[in-house]
Write a protein that binds this DNA or RNA. Structure first.
Lengths: 190, 190, 190, 190
DNA sequence: AATGAATGAGCCTTCATTCAT
DNA sequence: CATGAATGAAGGCTCATTCAT
């Protein structure tokens, strides 16, 4: 049994952090950011408050990391080859994936919308957010350009808004919202 | 000095309530419901915390009243003759008005989205909300039925989601979002 | 119609004050001193808070007056001819009257015991209280002296304590406490 | 430094809880339940308000625990062999003990009387109180029955009331009240 | 690495009292 | 005499964060 290398420690640390984030996201999605106390999170994660602060310097930081994780996931599915060109196939793939993420991760999206509505919190993640959203918009615009739309920029903002609207309505009413039909309906629009 | 008449008191009350509601809405739109403390609201309104409770029996009640005010405004502009039939003209009028309200009342819409995301707050207004949204959806569905859409219900949910998405994007980025172009773009879709 | 004399004004004032005191005592006996806000009292008395302060300079003063009123009532029935001599007849009369006061004025006695338990409040009424209780005790002692008791002072303190105990138990459990039988039982002891 | 063991934490908790209860009882006995704020208690105990809530989930709970502690003490001394039969010897022992408890724990008895007078607080402890007082009364009644009293129930209520009266007068005036003589006087009555 | 006791600022709310009218 | 709007201090409670062990 050789002593654990630094890398192994790092891995263990990351695993722990991920576990904590999962618990935190769960609680936040159940009760909102403000009602999710560090105490609750630590307790459900099975660790002490003190230890939690060993992993995250503050509640704010922890939430930031959770949000960033979600963003990363989003970036992965959009324009996967990062060539800035969205083929028809990639567009369909993107929508499929987006709806998949939405469905499989309601908790995250509740947090996402919550954060967007709190300017003070938004400030914390703004840079990263823009960094995520910009290539997305550019690619979309160029996509609609190639499709020959009169005002591709407006079209891009329109589709982006609609996608958020769909996400919003889905998380508000996950059982009632006809997510699949909406997805099919979307195929026709793009 | 004779005491103030009942009418004078009534006037004072109305003015104060309105003033408080305005300040509260402003702060809520800046910081979210949870971060808007009674202290902050009272301070910005230039009154004591105690006085606020002279006008609203609780923070909850205050928020409820603010939300209801906004709902009333919304109800007024949709299907104004309340016949359940949305003519093409009325549809256009509705969109115009909706965008107008949106533009002139960003603060309220921030509150609206905040509320939607907080089940606890939603509970407070659920009844009134359903009462507002149901005829809206019914009318929309019948509108798309008459237009010959294959799945009018999905179409209605789609448009509702998109409208919310547009609102959402607008309040997040009021300066950058091309509201007018989006409006025109919407005319074509309906 | 001659203008009201000062005396008449004084009478009206006294009537009002009495009415307020009655309401106050009622509320206090229902909810305790602390939970009886000036607002509630004024509202139930049908006047404004401001006016109440016209009659009493503070809540404390008002309560003081209510307590003093009760004491006066008590003094009246004990040794009515104020000769310091308690005849057997007067003793019986006193007990009768005491039990009558107790029964007909539970509200007051709740307040009385409450006040006795709050040293800070007691301080306010101490002087008057001693002034009331001293002749009572003296008379009692001399009564038991004449009866030939070995330790008349102890006997007096004993009976005084028991009377308070009876009052206490009665107000705690007015329906269950056998007040009449206890009264008869008392006749035998004196 | 290794973290504290569970046992160490338990010890700290026990000590703190006891310390808090002592201070709370002291303040309550000085100012009554309603005037004893958590602030005052925490301040005199030399801890922060927040910490108090680490030990008691509410002011109510804290008071409940304090009251129950006192009740337990009382139950111990009455009819110690729990056979429901009070011998003459046990009766004397009980009185001795009762007076001893009274003398050594004035603060608690102030609380006891306070609680009796506050229906809201009484509700919290009613069950436990009845459970305590019922066997006491039953035993008393049967005691007087065996002694051949005409109305043993009335006699029991009478003695109970007198005992409370004595307690009441003692806590109101601990220095002046002739507790020892009263005790001797009581021996004769039973 | 790990614990949870401890802090302190802040939250919502209540209420005796004052004061312009 | 009469009103109730307005104040300000205090009350019960919560919670992110720190720290001795």
């Amino acid at each position: 049994m050789s002593p654990r290398t630094e890398k192994q420690f790092e891995e263990i640390r990351e695993e722990r952090k991920t576990q904590i984030k999962e618990v935190a996201l769960e609680i936040i999605s159940e009760e909102g950011i403000q009602n999710s106390s560090i105490s609750k999170i630590a307790k459900r994660a099975g660790i002490s408050k003190g230890l939690l602060y060993n992993y995250y310097e503050s509640k704010e930081q922890m939430i930031k990391e959770i949000i960033f994780d979600g963003m990363d996931q989003f970036i992965k599915v959009f324009d996967p080859d990062k060539d800035g060109l969205l083929t028809d196939e990639e567009a369909k793939y993107f929508i499929d994936e987006l709806f998949h993420i939405l469905e499989s991760n309601i908790k995250y999206w509740r947090l996402y919308f919550s954060v967007m509505l709190q300017p003070k919190v938004m400030l914390l993640i703004q840079d990263r957010f823009i960094q995520m959203i910009e290539p997305f918009m550019k690619t979309l615009v160029s996509y609609f350009e190639r499709k020959g739309y009169g005002n591709p920029y407006v079209e891009a903002r329109m589709i982006a808004a609609c996608l958020d609207g769909i996400g919003f309505h889905y998380i508000i009413d996950p059982k009632g919202f006809p997510l699949n039909e909406i997805k099919k309906r979307l195929y026709e629009s793009i």
